[in-house]
Amino acid sequence: MILLVAPEIPANSNAERRQLVSSSIFATVILIMTEVMFFAALISAYMIIRSGAEEWPPWGQPRLPVFATALNSLTLLASAFCLHRSVKVFSSQSSQSKQLLALTIALGTVFVSVQGYEWVQLISFGLTITSSTYGGVFYLIIGAHGLHVIGGLLALLACLRRLNSTSQQLTIDNLRAAQIFWYFVVGVWPVLYTLVYLL
């Protein structure tokens, strides 16, 4: 007979339940799995739309600032390095960890701000979400990533606030959960940059 449900462990059993990974980290990993599928769907849509276009970018549409965005990408990569260092020294050097976390947030904010400036420029040049399919997919993909960066920044800000707080202690697991999400945000960017800006 095949059991579809696991047998219940009696209350007086000696069997112990162990937590292999913290809930916050596990939840973040599940979230990232869904986010990977979300971005995979966007990339797929982009590739299919692009493959059907005779000219890409379409004639009359402004070109994207490839070099400026490459420099901006370095800011995002630097923020991931700072966060890596911050988590590494979290237990031993709390004040340095705090400074590195603040630097991570600052670098992330610079990235979003430069992206925002780039968008304002592109809109002024006539590239809007309704100007063409090119504009539509550009703002959809890069905008979705930008929203994730903002979400990651909010998570890091919450970590920094708890790091400064005396009443609410920040645990290493909470910081690692935010770190995993930030790594995802940073890791997906080179893929999007290559697809949207370079190819």
Binding site: M33, V36, M37, A40, A41, I43, S44, A45, M47, I48, R50, S51, G52
Partner: peptide, 25 residues
């Protein structure tokens, strides 16, 4: 998803992305 274009490139992209979205999860 690919009715807007009947080119060979679109067909190839459709197959590729279908495989990608199947394998990834």
């Amino acid at each position: 998803a690919v009715c807007f274009s009947s080119s060979e490139n679109t067909r190839a992209a459709f197959y590729l992305t279908t495989a990608f979205l199947t394998v990834l999860p």
